[in-house]
Amino acid sequence: MSALLSVERLEAGYEPGLSIVRGASIHADKGEIVVILGPNGAGKSSLIKAIAGLVPVSGGRVVLAGEDITAVPAHLKIRKGLAFVPQTENVFTLMSVEENLRVAAGVFGDRQVAAHIEEMFALFPDLARQRRLMAGSLSGGQRQMLACARALIVKPGVLMLDEPSAGLSPKFVEQVFARLVEIRASGVTIVLVEQNARAALAIGDRAYVLVEGREAHEGPARSLWDDPLIAELYLGHRKEGAA
């Protein structure tokens, strides 16, 4: 079995000799939602940024659909089909909603920009109503939707998200995650880094627990949630509380 995205013994960090990601290996199959959990400072965010090309990689490799894309510059990864939604500052705040989508759709000289924008507005009707609004004045939840639409507009095979629930009220978390399930249904593979283990494991197929820059546990999402040791050590809830 070959995974759509596979990350092999990745080493990455901002400064030479100071790795934050220390030999992490994860993989995602087509159509999966893979959740990456872990305590603060485990390197979850750095791992996903390293895959996206934003943190220098010093060892290991990233393979997408059989092609080694480790050394592909960040701006070309999306052309290979790997999209990334950062945790914060994930929209161009001084541009309108529509311009955010337009600039993303046009980077490869696509001639059907307008059609693709309308597709995204069909997928996210809330955004369609606010297409002329500055992205900076959107609410947190809508901003997250726009960030997803911005990443999806070039039809990537894999969508990676860094803590999409951060700073959102429970109602919005539910909406965003419901939307992720729909996106997966359209055939997109999702890699999700999350602090909110409960919400993420509820929609995830498989999950990793990252500790000190490397995966410490892997398993079906449900079983990870039910494992009392993992729950108490890494996910911040007790078995009784979850039952």
């Binding site: 934003l54 701006h75 070309l76 999306i78 052309r79 500052e89 993303a104 980077v107 490869f108 911005r150």
Partner: peptide, 13 residues
């Protein structure tokens, strides 16, 4: 406005 986001959006710096 945002160099890092521009890169992941596919903009060639």
């Amino acid at each position: 406005q945002n160099p890092a986001l521009a890169r992941v959006t596919g903009i060639d710096v």
